[in-house]
Design a binder for these strands. Structure first.
Lengths: 195, 195, 195, 195
DNA sequence: CATGAATGAGATTTCATTCAT
DNA sequence: TATGAATGAAATCTCATTCAT
């Protein structure tokens, strides 16, 4: 009884996912250059050769992992995809951002490590710029609506803060007061019109 | 007539510096693992072998570079080394931090890239923790004196923000509004008692 | 159709053997440090890189070669593994020892060269001590049974003699009177009770 | 007051000696290839460059060390240089050989290690053959005079035994019963005519 | 005589990728 | 689809020897 094309496809996707999961774990914790294809294959329980059946190259693999994470990030910012950020949505976004940091620390470790390695950054740069620009646009309009004096500076400050929080939490998860910091962020960078 | 020990020492230090400068540039812009000893030697205009007359290993080299930067960083925070941070000194520190970001972007690129690569981070971890702990202590006492509700959260938020600003500026120096952001930082995180 | 695990195993073992043979020849005749991995690979007709698919390091390689030889040596001393040496077995051992010297001079060259190079000796020391201690024990009991005055001295003298014969034969195989020497050894160090 | 030529010469010889001593120690205990010129210079407390003022090369250095030891060895065998070995002289030789083993273990370690490393052996081979041939000649005539059945085999057996004793003592100086073994050697290989 | 900086060849080892089976 | 043997380029590091001072 041969498998149906759907079954084949599902199997393929599952295995692809398994490889990406194993690679994410290793890339994040050991570094991209310190992670050999051998290690990834071993960790995903497949042979080295098969890896190349699912990904063209090591670069293709990290790119796919990065993309998968990025594509969910923007959904948090504008869940109803109307291109507008309400104050509720802003709070929601901050909450989701902190959540994902706690739930997928490995992914965010990899994310920041990619950002900081020019050679790797180049691999994903295009996709990254796109997401960033969209987000910035939303934030800009949000702060304009809020009547902030310099919306661009405010948006960038906010973005910087979120990055900084991410990094510092990931470097010292046990001592970083994430919950308290979240409150302060919402308070200081959320509802400006009240000021 | 052989060189005097002083002559030798001077020669050594000059060349050591030259190697460190070349390596910093390359490590920061191409990444630690993408920078071969060959490239560094070529860039410093010496032979591969000579590198090892000045540094025991590639690791020794990056460690030395990191250390040199770290040792100047703490001096900004507490220039008179009295273990206490005044509001003036706080402003001074923020100003110096933004200055050094503009003047030594290469170093800070390397700094953040080290932070985000576990395998490399381990090499400098000890020295890093030491500086971080000292800085945190100063900030904690500063915010306590300022009567802030949760000094620890405030200190960490400030640290995170500075990191985030650094990263975002370095990734997009032309569009990041550094000057405006600096003012906001001093305003929001400096003189709390006045609020 | 992929190879079966059995096929892979067989392939591996054959190639492993080929590498060990090539390495033994070179190590023995050119010395461990004068034999580069390149030379071994060339002699075994494989690429340099492949060596490391079969042996973790050069040290691992020489260790494996040494071990293979050692594991057969002790079998000569106590072939029926009853922990006891009869006079017949003693004669048998001496004969086998001389035989193996003639048949595997390369191995014994390597053996003695390892013994005489502290840095290399350390690599195999543990396994060596083990075999030596077992052999000494057998010889001691043998000479005690033979009523020799100082069995320890006799056993060590015998061991020393065998080593010396090995070395001198290997250095000048054409002129060393191996056959005649063997007779004398059996006569002088074999049956003592008759004296 | 300039030094006289004699003083210069003496100073030179002393420094040469110091280098040879340092090198002997290192060659014997760490191996020829594991001992760098740097290490030797450091241990002899001179600069690397100066080394080459006293010895043309690393090879020249080990050759000189070997030669120095060899030139004293033959003196033991035939102290009055009459080309004849009496029974008294035989005993004397054995005693001196055991003495030198105890007093200069380092030299003999190096000696045996050279013998067992073909590439190094080649460097000293000529000088070695010469001494060995002379010694063999003396021993042959000695055993002929003693009326031994096969003098060549006896001489070679004796030589082999002395080598074996040396090696085994050097590998395990604390447990090798050197004194007792010496007695047995003199008894078994000295005065044959009495048998 | 004396120094140690400098070179350059070569050693060991790693690894992304290909390929025969 | 699946395996892991095989390659080859490149990386880190060592060291005998030379040379300017």
């Amino acid at each position: 009884m041969p498998r149906t094309p759907e079954q084949f496809k599902k199997l393929r996707e599952e295995k692809r996912s398994r490889i990406m999961d194993a690679a994410l774990e290793l890339f994040a914790n050991e570094g991209y250059h310190n992670t050999s294809i051998s290690k990834i294959a071993g960790s995903a329980d497949i042979s080295k050769g098969l890896m190349y059946n699912y990904f063209d190259s090591k670069e293709d693999l990290i790119t796919a992992i990065f993309e998968k994470g990025m594509s969910t990030l923007f959904e948090f910012l504008d869940p109803n995809k109307d291109g507008v950020l309400t104050t509720n949505e802003f709070d929601f976004f901050v909450n989701r951002a902190f959540d994902t940091l706690i739930k997928n620390p490995t992914y965010w470790k990899l994310y920041f490590s990619i950002m900081m390695q020019p050679v790797i950054y180049e691999m994903v740069q295009e996709r990254y710029q796109q997401v960033i620009m969209d987000s910035l646009q939303l934030l800009l309009e949000y702060y304009e609506k809020q009547g902030v004096e310099d919306p661009m500076a405010e948006a960038m400050l906010f973005g910087a803060l979120m990055d900084g929080i991410g990094i510092n939490y990931l470097l010292n998860p046990e001592i970083f007061p994430l919950e308290k910091v979240k409150e302060t962020v919402i308070e200081k960078f959320g509802h400006k019109s009240s000021a």
